Amino acid sequence: MDIHEFLELPHRFRWGGVGGDDCLTFPASWAARVTGTDPAEEYRGTYRDREEAQEILRLFGGSLGLMEHQLALVGAVRVHQPTTGDIGLIRAMTGDTRDERIEAEIGAIRFGPLWACIHPAGVRATKAEFIAAWRLPA
Rank of each mutant, 00 (worst) to 15 (best):
99 D>W: 12
22 D>R: 07
127 K>M: 15
90 I>L: 12
46 T>G: 02
44 R>Y: 07
116 A>Y: 11
108 A>M: 10
75 G>D: 01
15 W>Y: 14
75 G>F: 04
96 D>M: 11
54 Q>E: 12
3 I>V: 15
6 F>E: 09
52 E>H: 02
16 G>S: 08
48 R>F: 10
67 M>T: 04
105 E>R: 13
84 T>G: 03
86 D>G: 08
136 L>C: 06
36 G>Y: 03
111 F>G: 02
43 Y>D: 08
60 F>Q: 04
80 H>M: 13
108 A>S: 15
34 V>D: 09
15 W>D: 06
21 D>E: 12
127 K>G: 13
62 G>D: 00
7 L>M: 13
14 R>T: 09
70 Q>K: 15
26 F>I: 07
59 L>P: 02
83 T>R: 15
52 E>S: 00
99 D>R: 13
71 L>R: 01
51 E>R: 10
49 D>T: 05
108 A>Q: 12
18 V>Y: 05
93 M>H: 03
60 F>V: 01
31 A>E: 00
20 G>M: 06
50 R>E: 14
22 D>H: 11
66 L>E: 00
119 H>R: 14
70 Q>E: 13
88 G>I: 09
48 R>S: 15
65 G>Y: 03
14 R>I: 08
18 V>C: 06
128 A>K: 00
137 P>L: 02
46 T>Y: 06
121 A>D: 13
101 R>I: 08
59 L>Q: 13
36 G>Q: 07
94 T>P: 05
100 E>Y: 04
125 A>E: 12
16 G>W: 02
71 L>C: 02
71 L>W: 01
47 Y>M: 02
41 E>D: 04
121 A>M: 10
99 D>L: 14
78 R>N: 06
89 L>R: 12
50 R>Q: 09
134 W>E: 07
70 Q>R: 15
112 G>I: 03
87 I>Y: 05
23 C>W: 01
39 P>I: 06
78 R>S: 12
101 R>F: 06
87 I>R: 11
76 A>C: 05
44 R>C: 10
21 D>P: 03
107 G>W: 08
86 D>W: 06
109 I>N: 00
75 G>T: 06
57 L>N: 03
82 P>S: 09
127 K>H: 13
108 A>L: 08
32 A>N: 03
109 I>S: 07
101 R>A: 14
70 Q>D: 10
85 G>E: 05
99 D>T: 12
115 W>M: 14
52 E>Q: 14
79 V>M: 01
61 G>Y: 03
32 A>M: 00
108 A>E: 11
69 H>C: 04
52 E>T: 02
20 G>S: 05
50 R>N: 07
18 V>A: 03
2 D>Q: 09
94 T>F: 14
135 R>Q: 12
110 R>Q: 11
17 G>C: 04
65 G>F: 01
129 E>L: 15
37 T>S: 07
128 A>H: 12
20 G>P: 05
58 R>P: 00
72 A>C: 03
101 R>M: 14
93 M>R: 10
90 I>F: 10
133 A>V: 05
24 L>K: 01
75 G>S: 01
134 W>F: 10
108 A>R: 11
118 I>K: 07
6 F>Y: 15
45 G>S: 08
73 L>Q: 08
96 D>A: 13
72 A>G: 06
40 A>R: 01
26 F>Q: 06
45 G>Q: 04
69 H>F: 11
123 V>N: 09
43 Y>T: 04
65 G>L: 02
122 G>F: 13
64 L>H: 00
90 I>R: 09
52 E>R: 05
133 A>D: 13
120 P>V: 11
100 E>F: 11
